[in-house]
Amino acid sequence: MVLVDIRETKSVKAADIFLQVRPGKDFELITILRAMIKDQPISETQIAETGLTMEQLQDFVSRMKAARFGVMFFGMGLSMTRGKHMNSAALLTLAAEMNAFTKFVAMPMRGHGNVTGADVIMRSQTGYPFGISFNRGYPRYNPGEFSTVDVLVRGDTDCAFIIGADPGATMPQPAIDHLARIPTIVLDPHVTHTSRLSRVHITTAPAGISAPGTAYRMDEIPLPLHPALESPYPSDEEVVRRINETLMKKPDWMGERPQILQTQI
């Protein structure tokens, strides 16, 4: 196991090799690795910029090529620092290019329970994994334009429906301020920070504890939930379905238009 980080974390103990990259130099490091696997010339000064040495990287590249099945795990340290989604894109390209030599995949490390399920469901129903807009009547994908933090900070949205998340505790202050300004609706097993600034809060049964269903593991394996308790509250699924049913009774916002996605399986 090779660990790449800007500082020595607790995971160093579990790692065989630790590569300490200079903060904000992820994109440079990945690009150098992409060149090195293809034996393209790289200068010592270019490598020195990343805080690592030629020997370290040559060793790393030969280990990657010698592997029979390599996995690159990446987290928010890569995708949320300088370069953002360009860093993720570079890493995914490196993983794709490694397949010229051996089997390699890249996988995001997930914090929350069923966030992988959200990706999978949105992908299967709309064709896109996140950052989607239906405002033209068909799904469009554009992170940065339709992603939540950006939409809230710019103040684009005039009503927010929050389920299984607590942006009031985690998002930047301008985004939270906008959530407090607009009607916000929260579905959560607890009264959260977001519930306190919302107009409507509905308590629901916690998934996996008292609500049944399916959750996706980080590597996209669907697993059934086996709830242990009976909840006095309805499940998320039931509440959202009832909201959908209530909305279907109202006239369509686009006139006599059939629903775009014909099958909500």
Binding site: H112, G113, N114, V115, G117, A118, V120, I121, T148, A160, F161, I162, I163, G164, A165, P167, L187, P206, A207, A211, P212, G213, T214, A215, Y216, P222, L225, S235, D236, E237, V240
Partner: peptide, 10 residues
Amino acid sequence: YGMSNTTCEA
């Protein structure tokens, strides 16, 4: 927005 701590059905 959200959908992390909930089921695929929801």
